[in-house]
Design a binder for these strands. Structure first.
Lengths: 232, 232
DNA sequence: AAGATTCCGTTGCTTTTGCAACAAAAAGGA
DNA sequence: TCCTTTTTGTTGCAAAAGCAACGGAATCTT
């Protein structure tokens, strides 16, 4: 676990703690670690989990595949991000989505019960961690809500605009990159890839935006246009 | 606040506490109360909030209206339910949805900061409340995820089936009532009311289900059929 | 460098949805 | 009870989306 201390220091959960403090808490929280190969499942639908997880390295997808092979991408997890927290304290709730490694990944687990109850040795920073945890869950909550906003749009165009303008705002610039390829973006917005491509093409023709691979530029409708160049 | 003690005892947040204990915590959490008329806004898009709220009485809608008058219903809040928790601890985050009273309502507020930091008088039950809060947010998180599952379905029929079978499972019976009228259900699933009605009609004709007003019956496809009767 | 694989864009066709407008049923108010 | 308002269902039409199939570009592998 020691090798991850400097990493953990910068995660939301341990923000504000020194490495030595994290080290001492790691025992208190019964930390453990596991690595996964690309393609391997970290969590499976129907299972239960009692730990809070942080991705230390790699990339994960939270996704759902139904009977008919329909594939929907709920969320992408980057290093430092928390997951499994929504199930960690629920006694009888079963996980509703799969979490899959899309790259070789390493995950750290912390016993939820230990995180939430101040331990007998009274770690002085426990209270801070609880606040951090709360903030992290709140943030996730807001993200889910925002995703619902994208998906609530009736047309593919409006879904795209909702998503892309949020990304642009996040980047605080009209030019930005998205973390998805076309198929993934389609799965994320829950539309057909080909139909989405068609719509993107139309929007470019109408001068709303330009793009190359996963770099996008939002254009103010009335003016002449910078164009995203393929990175070659 | 006293008149709400017996009510609060049964909410998720105060579950496990006695009325006297809740009473003593109410001060510690700087509880306050406010009533709203039908149609009045409880929270507005763009505002900030630093308190956790519980609906004591009435009915609320969390909704979003965009420029063009498109109306989408994120969530319905029933008495005892928590809300505003996703924003209460976020310093600079602005509320992204409106919360509106659809009936005359009474809301109780608790200072989030006080809830999360164990107070100097060291209320002995504070730790329990923190766990309860965590459980409640987790549950909300799961609900949002589930709603995304409904909305991720590509056709109105599949959205309806996803939603209705979840409701049926919740009721643990093939016959159940939903808390929405047609327009509200359409807003919740983010589809056109008329198109939804058309689809409901088809599904009934095909023997998948029957309904009257907001009472639904899911039918096993291959067999003969009980029918939902209007309540008159 | 050649071949294989993944990613991206395009298009014809069919189905589904949104939209608008209207009619009937139910609920609410005076 | 009568009148008004709300809710639900229906339908024609136009727009949008899903589906399938294909070809070329980019990337990876050996």
């Amino acid at each position: 676990m020691e090798k991850y201390l400097s990493f953990l220091k910068h995660t939301t959960l341990f923000e504000g703690l020194q490495e030595a403090q994290i080290q001492s808490m790691a025992n208190c929280l019964q930390a453990s670690r596991r690595s996964y190969r690309k393609g391997e499942y970290v969590l499976r639908q129907g299972a239960q989990v009692h730990a809070i997880a942080i991705l230390a390295q790699g990339l994960l997808h939270v996704q759902k595949d139904d009977y008919w092979g329909n594939h929907s991408l709920l969320h992408q997890i980057a290093p430092g991000e928390l997951f499994a927290e929504a199930y960690a304290m629920a006694e009888n709730e079963v996980i509703l989505n799969d979490v899959v490694a899309v790259e070789d990944s390493t995950v750290l687990f912390f016993q939820a019960q230990k995180v939430l109850t101040v331990c007998s040795n009274a770690c002085p920073f426990h209270s801070l961690i609880i606040q951090n945890l709360f903030r992290a869950i709140s943030a996730k909550n807001r993200h889910l809500t925002q995703k619902i906003d994208y998906m609530a749009q009736r047309t593919i165009r409006d879904k795209l605009l909702a998503y892309l303008s949020a990304q642009s705002e996040l980047a605080q610039a009209p030019t930005f990159q998205i973390p998805f390829n076309r198929q993934q973006l389609a799965d994320f917005l829950s539309v057909e890839r080909s139909a989405m491509c068609r719509e993107l093409g139309k929007m470019r023709d109408e001068g709303l935006l330009s793009f190359a691979r996963n770099t996008f530029v939002l254009l103010s409708p009335q003016r002449a246009n910078p164009t995203a160049q393929a990175d070659h």
